[in-house]
């Protein structure tokens, strides 16, 4: 059996509050493997450590305990081989759309001829044709998020880390974005770790869904999502198997929330 691309081995992360010096264990003893080319959605209640896992994979933070391996190696410093899409797009407002998208290749010093055509094609594919020279503040929220995806994608990252990238969008735009993401991924199958609150989103996008417990987070459920690709949203929500999976996950998340209320009361 080939080793998984991403391995979290009994990873724990503890934060120390700056003023009170109080310790918070964000996640405790998380073990999780993600295979090459797999699309994994991470679900869980707010504050359970989803972003923490993503930040450690990106290389922004190190684990307190345990090991994180990517392709068998410890996580190095952040770089374009692991694309990150943040919840709030985080575009550079002083750069135009095309300059945002080509930020990483420009920095690496290769000739513009090697990436410019690809960038324009990517912008077109993301439905942003004609907006190359607009500034980020001249775009809508959904358009900004598409620029952020293109910006991460242009380096052909082996791993794409997405932290609630569509969380701020309305239902209509969100669905459009999910479809764009799946369609764009169809050609270059990269490994995706996608954090979300939205169960339907997870079921529509993922090959596998991992559900986390409340803080300190652990993985409480890890299930494959069997629906064949390409997926059609309308057909999917009409499928009884979809509703059943959704109910299972809702039940588990609910138990988490009830458990939290009880410990809070105690």
């Amino acid at each position: 059996m080939v080793a998984p691309l991403i391995e979290l081995q009994s990873v724990s992360k503890c934060f120390r509050a700056q003023r009170t010096r109080q310790e918070t264990w964000a996640i405790r003893d998380v073990s999780l493997n993600i295979g090459e080319g797999e699309f994994l959605c991470l679900l869980g209640p707010s504050g359970c450590g989803k972003s923490t896992i993503l930040d450690m994979l990106a290389g922004f933070e190190g684990p307190t305990e345990g090991r994180i391996l990517i392709a068998g190696e410890p996580v190095g410093r952040p770089g374009p081989d692991r694309g990150v899409v943040f919840q709030d797009a985080s575009l550079f407002p002083w750069l135009s759309v095309i300059d945002n998208v080509t930020f990483a290749p420009r920095l690496s010093g290769v000739a513009p001829s090697t990436y410019r055509a690809q960038a324009l094609e990517l912008i077109e594919k993301m439905g942003l044709g004609g907006f190359e020279n607009h500034a980020p503040y001249e775009l809508s929220g959904g358009m900004r998020q598409r620029v952020a995806i293109a910006r991460a994608w242009i380096s052909n990252p082996r791993i794409l880390l997405m932290d609630e990238p569509f969380g701020a969008l309305d239902a209509q735009t969100r669905l459009e974005m999910q479809e764009t993401l799946l369609a764009a991924r169809g050609q270059a199958v990269s490994t995706v770790l996608f954090v979300t609150h939205d169960i339907e989103e997870a079921l529509f996008l993922a090959d596998r869904v991992a559900v986390m417990s409340r803080r300190p987070g652990r993985i409480t459920l890890d299930i494959p999502i069997p629906f064949p690709r390409p997926r059609c949203y309308e057909a999917l929500i009409a499928d009884p198997a979809f509703s059943r999976l959704k109910q299972d996950i809702v039940r588990i998340l609910r138990q988490e929330i009830v458990a939290r209320r009880e410990t809070d009361r105690a």
Partner: peptide, 8 residues
């Protein structure tokens, strides 16, 4: 963070 992950 966005800058670092893009290689800066």
């Amino acid at each position: 963070r966005a800058g670092k992950v893009l290689g800066a």
